[in-house]
Design a protein around this nucleic acid. Structure first.
Lengths: 188, 188
DNA sequence: AGTTATAAGCTAATACTATTAGTTTGTCAA
DNA sequence: TTGACAAACTAATAGTATTAGCTTATAACT
C-alpha cells in the first residue's frame, strides 16, 4: 500500500536542509530525512547518492542560496557600502541557515563540476564588488581569501559559541569588517 | 588471556589524536582507537566517557598544545613581531595537528570547567601579547575576537581546500595578518 | 484504451557504529 | 596470603548506512 511516487531530489534536499538548519549538520541522518518525508530509508537512494551525496547536494544548495542572498543585499550599492552589505548578508545567511552553511564549508573540494561552478559564481559576485578597488589579479586573490577568512572565521566561531558572552558581538563584527575594508583602501 | 592492564586515559587520547590528525576528526571512531591499542571497544569506557567524552578530551589536549606552541613561539618577542609569531604558530599547529585543531574548534562551550580554564589560559596568553597596544577592555575583546576569526577562518578554509590552487597561500596569510595588525595600531 | 517498460518505493539482509550490563581476572594493598 | 577493587572482557541492544532484489504504480507507446 501507499507506494505512490511522492519524492524527488529537491524534496529530499529541502527536508535535509530543514533538519540540518534546525538541529545541526551532525544530526542530519538518512533515517530522520526518511521519517520526515514519511518514506523508508532506502527509497532516498533513488534521488540522492547516499548520505555523502545528500551532504554534497545540501552544500550546493547552500552555496547557491548564499550567492543569491549576497546579490540581493548588494544590488544598487557599490564601494565600501557594498562590501559591508556583503559581509552582513553572508553572516545573516549563515545564522538563518546554519546547516546549509556548515555543509557548504566542509564540502569536498575538487572533482565536482556543479559545486565548483557554483563556487566560481559566488567568487564572481565578490570580485564584482571588489572591482572599484582596482586591485590587480594577485591582490584580488589575496583580498578574496582574506574576506572569506574573516567572515567564515567570525561566523563559525560565533555559531560554535566560541565568543562566550554574546556581549556586543555585532559590534565586534562591524569593527573587524571595517578594519579589513580600511586595509583594502590602503592597498589601492 | 591477555587481560593485563595496559590502558590509561592518556594513552587513549594519544591514540585518538594520532588517528584524528592522520585521517580527520570525522574518521575518529572508538573501534579504530580500540584496534590501534589492541583492545576491545568497551574497555575504552573505563578511561574515557564514550565517543563524546573522547572528543572533548581531544579538544582539551588541542587547546593546551596550541597554547604551548604559541608560548614557545612568542617568548622573548613583543609588539607586532610577537603578534605575527602568534598567528604563524597557531597556523602551524593547526596544520601539524588538524584533528586536535578541529576537535578544539567544535568543542562544546559551557559547563566544562577544565576546557573553559584551558581556553581562558590561551586567551590570557593572547591578551599578554596584546598588552603593548594598550587597548581598553572592550577594545581588547573586539581585538581578540577579530584575531581568532581571521586565524581560524583562514586556517580552516585552507585545511578544507577552500582556496583552490595553493598559489601563494603563505603570502595571503601574511597580508591578512599584516592588515589586521595595521588596523590594531590605528585603533591605539 | 490497452500493453509494456521503466523506475519508485518497498522488504530483507548485511555490516558498521556506540553503548550498557554483567562476568572474569589481574593487580595492588592490607 | 588474602581480599577488595577495578580493568578488560563477552554478550546483547539499538542505531546507523548501504546493497540486493521484489512489487507495482506510473508513464510512454502502440
Amino acid at each position: 500500500m501507499a507506494r505512490k511516487r511522492t519524492l524527488d531530489s529537491a524534496a529530499v534536499v529541502r527536508a535535509a536542509a530543514e533538519i540540518a538548519d534546525a538541529d545541526g549538520l551532525d544530526l542530519l541522518t538518512l533515517a530522520r530525512v526518511a521519517e520526515r518525508l514519511d518514506v523508508r530509508v532506502p527509497s532516498l537512494y533513488n534521488h540522492v547518492d547516499g548520505l555523502t551525496g545528500l551532504r554534497r547536494d545540501l552544500a550546493l544548495a547552500g552555496v547557491r542560496a548564499s550567492t543569491d542572498a549576497i546579490r540581493r543585499a548588494t544590488v544598487g550599492v557599490s564601494g565600501d557600502a557594498a562590501l559591508l552589505a556583503l559581509c552582513r548578508a553572508y553572516r545573516s545567511f549563515a545564522r538563518a541557515h546554519p546547516g546549509q552553511y556548515a555543509a557548504s564549508v566542509r564540502a569536498p573540494g575538487p572533482g565536482d563540476a556543479a559545486l565548483e561552478e557554483a563556487s566560481e559564481e559566488l567568487i564572481g559576485v565578490v570580485l564584482a564588488i571588489l572591482a572599484p578597488y582596482q586591485l590587480d589579479a594577485t591582490a584580488a586573490t589575496h583580498a578574496i581569501r582574506g574576506l572569506r577568512s574573516i567572515i567564515h572565521g567570525f561566523v563559525s566561531l560565533e555559531m560554535a559559541g566560541g565568543f562566550g558572552l554574546p556581549l556586543a558581538i555585532d559590534e565586534s563584527f562591524e569593527q573587524l569588517v571595517a578594519t579589513f575594508i580600511a586595509g583594502l583602501g590602503r592597498a589601492r
